[in-house]
Simulated assay, not measured.
Amino acid sequence: MENQQIKQAGLKVTLPRVKILKILETSDRRHLSAEDVYKELLANGEEIGLATVYRVLTQFEGAGLVCRQHFEGGQSVFELNRGGHHDHLVCIKCGKVVEFVDEVIEERQKRVASDRGFKLADHSLVIYGSCNGCEEDPDHRRSDSRA
Rank of each mutant, 00 (worst) to 15 (best):
M1H: 08
Q4K: 09
Q5E: 15
Q5P: 01
I6Q: 11
I6L: 13
I6Y: 14
Q8A: 09
Q8G: 03
A9N: 03
G10R: 12
G10L: 11
K12M: 05
P16Y: 14
V18W: 10
K19M: 15
I20S: 06
I20Q: 09
I20R: 08
L21Y: 14
L21W: 14
I23M: 04
I23D: 01
L24E: 02
L24K: 12
L24F: 09
T26D: 07
S27R: 03
S27A: 14
R29T: 13
R29M: 04
L32S: 06
E35A: 03
D36S: 13
D36H: 11
V37Y: 05
V37R: 02
E40Y: 07
A43V: 13
N44S: 13
N44C: 06
G45R: 09
G45L: 14
E46M: 13
E46T: 06
I48E: 04
L50H: 03
L50D: 02
A51K: 08
A51M: 06
A51E: 01
T52W: 04
T52R: 13
T52Q: 14
V53A: 09
R55E: 12
R55T: 11
V56N: 13
T58L: 03
T58A: 09
T58R: 15
T58Q: 14
F60K: 02
F60G: 01
E61D: 11
L65W: 06
L65A: 04
V66M: 02
V66G: 04
V66A: 07
R68G: 02
R68S: 09
R68I: 05
F71L: 14
E72H: 15
E72F: 15
G74S: 12
Q75L: 09
S76N: 10
V77P: 03
G83Y: 14
G83W: 10
G83V: 15
H86C: 00
D87H: 11
D87I: 05
H88V: 12
L89C: 04
I92D: 00
I92A: 02
K93E: 02
C94P: 00
G95Q: 07
G95S: 10
K96I: 13
V98H: 00
V101L: 01
V101W: 10
V101D: 02
D102T: 08
V104S: 05
E106K: 11
E107V: 02
E107K: 12
R108V: 07
K110D: 11
K110A: 10
R111H: 07
V112P: 00
V112F: 13
A113T: 00
S114K: 10
S114W: 05
R116I: 01
R116S: 11
G117A: 07
G117R: 11
K119P: 01
L120H: 08
A121E: 12
A121H: 09
A121C: 02
A121D: 08
D122V: 00
H123Q: 12
H123P: 04
S124K: 14
S124V: 10
S124A: 11
L125W: 06
I127M: 12
I127R: 12
Y128G: 06
G129H: 00
G129L: 04
S130E: 00
C131W: 01
G133F: 05
G133W: 05
C134D: 00
E136T: 15
E136Q: 10
D137T: 14
H140C: 08
H140T: 01
R142M: 08
R142A: 10
R142G: 03
S143M: 03
S145V: 10
R146H: 11
A147V: 10
A147E: 14
A147L: 14
